[in-house]
Design a protein around this nucleic acid. Structure first.
Lengths: 198, 198
DNA sequence: CCCTTATGTTGACATTGTCAACATAGACCG
DNA sequence: CGGTCTATGTTGACAATGTCAACATAAGGG
């Protein structure tokens, strides 16, 4: 018998996260309600409280997961493309692609819904994603293709730019101006390159 | 007798907007409740509905007001500093300063709380602010100090960068890394300049 | 096999956005 | 001046929501 989950669900935490993301995708962050999350999983409204202390804890978990995914994709792009100049541009592309493909995660990550607690797991994951950028810039400085500026600053600059593009893309402000996002990221990459190369 | 507002307030709409911004500043967008807004103005909870159809309409008004303020400050910075290269950098500085000084407005403007309705007044004000950037770039192209690229694209690139910086600053992600925002904007301006000049 | 712990449910309550019905001030018009 | 109309504000009510407390059930180890 495929007794799916008579009383105990099995992996409710993961299912809750997944369902929350799905709902945010459809209804926006403000449209997320705990009761609906439970209902969609055939589970009671308060079942969630055995896995998250709070609604905001659920959102924080979404953010944490998002940062982890982002970090993985950034590092993967950097390594797969040979850890050089063009690989760095692929990182930028991967960043924006992640945001566009996972707008729910991205909005929760940066939308100000979650407390910016400094020693939270979310903050640590965020720092990890940022570090991927710093590392890539450091490597390029060693290669001599990026100017010998404080790599933290350079990383912040690049981060701000791709972050800004990602936000504008998610908010539909690029689409509205008939802008193809991928092409625009390529363009921005050229300009960034011109701005940071030796 | 200084009969302030026996029954009719006089300029409740403006007062509501102002109070909403103040509350958002203190409690965040999600912490804004219509009942508290009314209470703080010594007015009933539903008085608001004579001036805004909705809570989201109140937020939309905050966003619209924000875009208008931003446009004014951008144009003012551009003109006051002589409409040349350095004036453009002052525009960038003004942009980030606005966001840092008015985080409530800024968050509502870009936080995804308001419908991105294309023919809303908010959208028109947003387009106006963006146009200030485009105009400044066009002028610099005429002056020969900016490369002859599609000015819309260039503006989007610059916008994305300052927008990204503004978001990171508001979220406290720059502070956390002991970054002085003003100095960082200056640095970013140099890099942008290197990226877009002829 | 029982007891402990993890997990899920039901009932209850305060808070909130919003609507309908009502009240009042101020303006306009004769 | 007096009456009426409209704009503005209030009160009562209700459904939706987050959350707590008390209870129920499954799982698993001694």
């Amino acid at each position: 018998m495929a007794r799916k989950h008579a009383y105990h669900h099995g992996d409710l935490r993961r299912a809750l996260l997944q369902e929350a993301v799905r709902i945010i995708q459809k209804k926006g962050v403000d449209g997320l309600t705990l009761r609906v999350v439970g209902a969609r999983l055939g589970v009671s409204r308060t079942a969630l409280y055995r896995h998250f202390t709070d609604k905001s804890a659920l959102l924080a978990a979404v953010a944490t997961e998002g940062f982890r995914m982002l970090r993985v994709e950034l590092i993967e792009a950097w390594h797969r493309h040979g850890q050089s100049g063009s690989a760095f541009e692929e990182m930028g592309m991967a960043y924006v692609r992640f945001a566009v493909a996972n707008p729910s995660h991205y909005r929760v990550m940066f939308g100000g819904h979650v407390e910016a607690n400094i020693d939270s797991e979310r903050a640590r994951e965020g720092a990890g994603a940022f570090q991927a950028l710093v590392d890539a810039l450091l490597a390029q400085q060693t290669q001599g293709s990026v100017r010998a500026e404080n790599p933290l600053r350079l990383a912040q600059f690049v981060w701000a730019t791709v972050h800004g593009i990602a936000m504008l893309a998610i908010d539909g402000l690029l689409e509205r101006q008939q802008t193809d996002v991928e092409a625009f990221v390529r363009f921005a990459n050229e300009r960034i390159r011109a701005g940071i190369s030796v």
